[in-house]
Amino acid sequence: MPEVIVEDVGALNLVALITRELINKNLQDPNKSKLIRHLNCTFVLKASRMTMTVIFKDGEVFLKNGAAPKPTVYIEAGLNDFLNIGVGGSYVTALITGRLKIRGIKLWKLLPILKLVRI
């Protein structure tokens, strides 16, 4: 099973740690793990003050603190909204109510990314 690659787990912030758990959990599902094969993109999440970057590259997933410049997809939410969406809460409602902000250059990558960071 593929797993998220992290240089130093002890240095990850809480949001990155939770995201790591979410992605690793999803990667155990063959239907979801096949999504990473061709998902070459950079995803940045800002949850409250914390930021983290996930890089999907050639079937591997890398994760680190901080926001990479010019991400493919950028998402911003409160920590509680991020967690709520992560465990299955509606991101559409969060988007409509302004609690979730999304921008990026290749937004069609959003759906597979969401499938990997939500359970």
Partner: peptide
């Protein structure tokens, strides 16, 4: 609890 590590740094 989350990282299962002792050597930790704070963002």
């Amino acid at each position: 609890m989350v990282a299962r590590r002792v050597k930790l740094t704070r963002d």
